[in-house]
Design a protein around this nucleic acid. Structure first.
Lengths: 230, 230
DNA sequence: CGACCATTTGATATGGATCAAGCGATGTGG
DNA sequence: CCACATCGCTTGATCCATATCAAATGGTCG
């Protein structure tokens, strides 16, 4: 059970960490363990900004509950979502000094926050920690490589790929809750909200999935979906 | 002047490194310096495979001259190019044990090759080297974030973005040599060869660029191009 | 209940793909 | 040295997937 801290809706919102701070660092040789140990708990309400593009990357974040989206805004106002982060996933780690994307809470979201400088100090002495920070970045890189691949596929392939990816990450059998809106999905896949909606309807009509309501889906025919994945 | 090694066209082709090996490692606290010092020189002919997707990632490479493309093949045979690497740039670094893309020489290409295990051993003791390996991956990540962004833009914006990117990397005034074919550019930008060609022609007709021949271009109106970048 | 917002559904427009020639370099054999 | 084959690129005509514009539906909250 985690200690509870107040909301932070403030714009540049570097949180006041006082009350929720954990015991001093212990060399656990595990980045994840370190975050759990020294991370400060924070809650962001739905749509609150967690950090902004080109802000100093002072913290690293791990999602405890809820969901986060990272994104960039194009000059013409279009928004490209870089990724979604669900419970247990880490985001906001930068090698350089600035965030390269903005981050927002998709729904009310609890995160653990760790100062980057603390991790750097740790990595200096513990090459295993350094390796795990690199591994995180490397994992993001591979995810992005697959995202690039997805963006050159057809609308149906993108949507199916998204559903299968979500199903794999939220391991609750065949029923999957979607924390994000259709607009979020569209901006992630580089499609319009109408195309996402139509594609989902079409997948439902072929009995590949079921859509009990707009914020969840059920996998009904993994074989068919696999074939449609591209 | 670098020692010359034989060609390697072999498929899995882990090169015989004997004759071109350099003196033993010195702690330079610089990844780049280390590559220059202990890297073995190799030449790959045009279109030769350097490594394949899901092969063991045993080496890291730095381009001395020529150019390299990394790519994935989709199930339907389409090829997505992940990136181009020009003289001075490093590719093939993996945190995990397998390459996540294939790599080929675009034109005849000379590279320096370093065993990953050697770098890992170095990084174990020298956190600066570890940091620089992470920085390389992080740089790739940022490049890919921009690539994702590019792939949701219009054809003209993608092509203009590509030209400006190439011009920035090959710093030879306004005239830029293109080592890669139209097909390579198309597969990088997620367009067809016809669309790339038409877009270039159109840019030439508006005097934004000049196309002396198919393998080079000149920037004629950076202002206009900047506005078209998106 | 009523206002609001997200989603779905429908009708039409369009950017880029596809299909199909034509053209210009580069190289090869006579 | 020239005729010709080849290959990569350009240009043209048409098609189609997805965007855009518009309206209807449904779910949520005061």
């Amino acid at each position: 059970m985690l200690a509870q801290s107040g909301y932070s809706q403030s714009t540049h919102g570097r949180p006041a960490l006082g009350p929720t701070r954990r015991p001093p660092p212990v060399t656990a040789h595990s980045l994840d363990g370190t975050i759990e140990m020294i991370g400060a708990s924070m809650v962001f309400p739905r749509n609150a900004e967690i950090f902004g593009e080109s802000e100093p990357a002072e913290y690293l974040y791990k999602v405890v509950s809820g969901a986060v989206r990272t994104y960039k805004i194009l000059s013409d106002g279009r928004r490209q979502i870089g990724g979604f982060y669900l419970a247990g996933e880490v985001f906001g780690l930068e090698n350089g000094d600035e965030h390269s994307l903005s981050a927002e809470a998709v729904s009310e979201t609890r995160v653990l926050v760790v100062k980057r400088s603390a991790l750097f100090a740790l990595a200096e002495r513990d090459s295993e920690i350094a390796r795990q920070m690199w591994a995180l970045t490397s994992h993001e890189l591979h995810r992005l490589q697959n995202h690039v691949l997805a963006l050159v596929k057809t609308a149906k392939e993108r949507v199916v790929g998204f559903l299968l990816e979500m199903a794999k990450r939220a391991p609750s059998g065949n029923r999957v809750e979607l924390p994000m809106s259709r607009q979020d999905i569209a901006d992630y896949l580089g499609l319009t909200i109408e195309t996402v909606s139509r594609t989902l309807t079409q997948l439902e009509s072929t009995a590949a999935i079921a859509l009990p309501n707009a914020r969840c889906f059920e996998l009904r025919d993994r074989g068919a979906l696999g074939r449609l994945r591209g």
